[in-house]
Structures are given as structure tokens and as C-alpha cells.
Write a protein that binds this DNA or RNA. Sequence first.
DNA 1: TACCGAGTTGAAGGATTTCGCAAGTGCTAA
DNA 2: TTAGCACTTGCGAAATCCTTCAACTCGGTA
Lengths: 112, 112
Amino acid sequence: MSVPLYQAKAELFRTLGHPVRIRVLELLQDGPKPVRDLLAAIDVEASNLSQQLAVLRRAGMVTSYRDGPLVMYALSTPDVADLLAAGRRILGAVLTDRDALLDELRAGGPDR
Amino acid sequence: MSVPLYQAKAELFRTLGHPVRIRVLELLQDGPKPVRDLLAAIDVEASNLSQQLAVLRRAGMVTSYRDGPLVMYALSTPDVADLLAAGRRILGAVLTDRDALLDELRAGGPDR
DNA sequence: TACCGAGTTGAAGGATTTCGCAAGTGCTAA
DNA sequence: TTAGCACTTGCGAAATCCTTCAACTCGGTA
């Protein structure tokens, strides 16, 4: 195979590995939105947002189309929302584990 | 919360954004494994693997313990497997879309 | 036509990551 | 104690990513 599967997977996840891109995807979960709205919600420069949108477009995670004077973006497949949800679940699991460890340390662990 | 949620999410996904780390997690889905085995399966230098394992450890996605002369690694939570599965699903959706486009573009010989 | 708002693109820089080598730690057996 | 396997860590060099600025395209409107 030309691009090993595990490399394609890594690229997929790396695409999500940026705060602005995550926020865009989360905002688009509620339906298509114009760049205007994303820009108003995210606090980032227009050109920067545009660059991040381009990354998401190249990765095939969003699609865009023009609606009069506005450019609209939408998730290319609802599966993206599943992935975000799975991420939320893990984040919960991992963070509680870490907090448990922190609490253990703070309480004065078995060895010091 | 000290770190905004969307940033924590981005870090989580970025952790998965590396071929070696993806392979490690997939191999660990079948149960704990010593570094030896990972090394034999992945084709990467020992020091490099060690560094990627350290990244996964810091992110809280795997745990390690020593068993005699070997160091064992395991997924810290089975939720990680869910995330990988979700990734696989999206990859399917996104790649078929893209392949359809590619086929449309080239109508010709196999290369790359 | 000229102009303006909405987005995009290209390029430069600075910041992060990644990689391989060399050196170091831990455990076990001789 | 010495040797040796199993890993890990420190550290530059190279590759990659992120951000910003300036310039550009596209629609709508006067």
C-alpha cells in the first residue's frame, strides 16, 4: 500500500491536534456555519482561521461552499462528531486518573 | 480549569498524531506487552520508541511497570481502543470520498 | 466602473517535533 | 564483581508546524 494505514491514521489525528481546528469542528456539529460566525466565536485572526480551515478541508473533514457573499463550512461526515465524542470520553478517563494520582501525591504517598 | 478544555482535547489528539505511537496503541489493544515485542514489531530505533512511549506515558494513555528484566506497557484505559476504532471509521468515510475524487481525476495508470 | 466586505493564499520567521547517536541506569546471571 | 541485555535519557541537527503580514480573488452594490 502506498501510504501505510497507520500513517493515514496518524495524519487524521494530527489534523485534530490544534485548538482552533477542534473548536471549528465542535461548532460545526450543530450544522453548517459561515466563516463569519466561526470568526466571531473563536478569537483568532481571519487569515489564521482560514489556514486552519484549509487544513481541515485538505484532510477531508469539512466541506465548504459559497452562499452569496458568505462561505459556509460543514462537517463532511457526521462520523466526525463521533470521533470528538470518543475524545471527550477518553479525556474524562485520563484526567480523572491523573487527578487521582495528583491527589495521592498531595496526600503524601507511600514513599517520599 | 487551568487549561481550556478544547486545548486539552487538541493535546489528546496530537498525542495520537504519530505513526509509531498509533502502532504502539494498536499493539497494546491485545494486552500488555514488553518493549522488546513492540520493538520487534515496529521497525524503529530503540531510543526513538522509548521517546514515543514517554510521550504516551506523559499523556496518560499508557502505563508501564517492570517485570524482571523487561519493562511492560499497557493501555491505561480501554477507552483508548474506542478512540482508535472511531478513527478507523472516519478514515473509511473520508478515504472513500477522497478515492472517488482521485478516480475521477486520473482515469489512468497506477503510480505513486 | 469602482469600491467594499468576506475569505483565501503565499511567504517569512519562530517555535515544536522528530530522529539518531552516545552515554547512562537497572536487573540478572556467571 | 564483571558482563550483558533491556531500556531510557541528553543532545544537537533536520524536518514540520504555527502565526502573521501583505497581497489577492470573489460577490454584491453604487
